[in-house]
Amino acid sequence: MPRTNRLTSVELCAGAGGLALGLEQAGFDPLLLLDNRDVACETLRANRPGWNVLHKDLLQFEPRFELPGHREIDVIAAGLPRVKSAATASRPRGSSWELELFETTARLTVELRPRALLIENVPDLLKRDEYESSRSRVAKHLEDAGYEHCWLLLDACEFGVPQHREYAVMAAVREGGITSFIEGLRPFPPAPGLTVGAVLRASMSVNGWPQVGEWAAQADVIAPTIVGGSWDRGGGDLGPQGSVRAWAKVGVNGRALADSSPSANFVWNPSQGPAHMLKLTVEQVAALQGFPSYWTFEGRKTARYRQVGNATPPPFACALGVALRSALTTL
């Protein structure tokens, strides 16, 4: 896309860059990416040395000092930390911090006056009554500032991601155009290559593992939701018991991650228990999140996996960006 036709973004809670990468593919260039985790900032800088990355807590962000002299911002995008949901029911604390970040993002939007705002989170942020007061405060901030907004429940698997991954997406547009955004979100037709077996077959075979064809054929399904990326729990695994059971159905041991693809002498036989199931590498999980193979993640294995597990899948982010770009360029 010609540089002169590109729009601008500011990204809050940027993480490992899944949302930023998708928006970049859709024609947005970031003026600033902010995250409170140093390892995530290292990942962003390693992949895009030219990006302006700020290691800072969103609640401490002061745009007048850290985003001085900016030209008009087309979109503020935020993949905010997840509120407590059914998938994180065992989390001992509530969601007061996450809701504060949600409301802070709305206040920053009013202050910075971007043309649009894009927020994604778990569906429970929209569905649960306990979050209604926070949603209402955010809506009032935006409406008083002249923004139209909408909420959408979307599954990333309908937008080119080989994984069932549901989101609550809130979009707001300052100059109208919210209907155009909604109409521009067109799900992709199912693609045979977007299954666990198809996506991971090549990487499973790099060490000459002879059973790769047998495994890939029975793994002809869209991946279950990748969880376990929480910074509040455990080590590197594919999530709680429900996730472990879902992965076991395709012969994958979800209780741990592998350092490399299976060796040539590995015997895959799920009937003999977890020791004879496959384990996924961080890179393979990233592929199921829709990251391109060239995107790297900094830190040790568990920190890398948490970045991947928390990320917005880039193809999904790109679809959101394309719809938003279309709405903004037709105003």
Results as ranks from 00 to 15, higher is better:
residue 192 P to V: 05
residue 113 R to D: 10
residue 205 S to L: 07
residue 285 V to L: 04
residue 179 T to V: 13
residue 305 Y to M: 00
residue 79 G to I: 04
residue 59 L to I: 06
residue 51 W to C: 00
residue 136 S to Q: 15
residue 203 S to P: 00
residue 205 S to R: 08
residue 129 D to F: 12
residue 215 W to D: 10
residue 15 G to D: 12
residue 328 L to A: 12
residue 126 L to K: 14
residue 200 L to C: 01
residue 18 G to Y: 14
residue 35 D to L: 01
residue 43 T to I: 11
residue 117 L to A: 01
residue 212 V to E: 15
residue 140 K to P: 07
residue 198 A to Q: 07
residue 115 R to A: 02
residue 119 I to K: 06
residue 299 G to R: 12
residue 242 G to Y: 15
residue 306 R to D: 02
residue 264 A to Y: 08
residue 13 C to Q: 11
residue 158 E to A: 09
residue 62 E to A: 06
residue 52 N to R: 15
residue 45 R to M: 11
residue 315 P to V: 00
residue 209 W to N: 00
residue 247 W to D: 03
residue 256 A to P: 02
residue 258 A to P: 02
residue 264 A to F: 12
residue 32 L to T: 05
residue 21 L to A: 08
residue 68 P to Y: 01
residue 66 E to W: 12
residue 229 G to Y: 14
residue 272 Q to T: 03
residue 246 A to F: 07
residue 247 W to E: 04
residue 196 V to Y: 05
residue 100 E to Q: 13
residue 119 I to Q: 12
residue 191 A to D: 12
residue 224 P to G: 03
residue 158 E to F: 07
residue 216 A to H: 06
residue 90 S to N: 13
residue 273 G to Q: 03
residue 3 R to N: 10
residue 12 L to T: 03
residue 52 N to S: 15
residue 87 A to N: 09
residue 216 A to L: 06
residue 61 F to D: 05
residue 208 G to K: 03
residue 253 N to P: 00
residue 157 C to E: 08
residue 215 W to G: 03
residue 255 R to T: 14
residue 275 A to N: 12
residue 142 L to N: 11
residue 315 P to Y: 03
residue 112 L to W: 14
residue 280 L to D: 01
residue 105 T to S: 01
residue 261 S to A: 14
residue 184 G to N: 12
residue 130 E to Y: 05
residue 305 Y to V: 00
residue 41 C to P: 15
residue 136 S to R: 15
residue 312 T to S: 14
residue 169 V to W: 06
residue 119 I to Y: 10
residue 86 A to N: 06
residue 214 E to W: 06
residue 153 L to F: 11
residue 222 I to A: 13
residue 217 A to Y: 09
residue 172 A to G: 12
residue 59 L to G: 01
residue 319 A to T: 13
residue 201 R to Y: 08
residue 164 H to L: 06
residue 82 R to C: 13
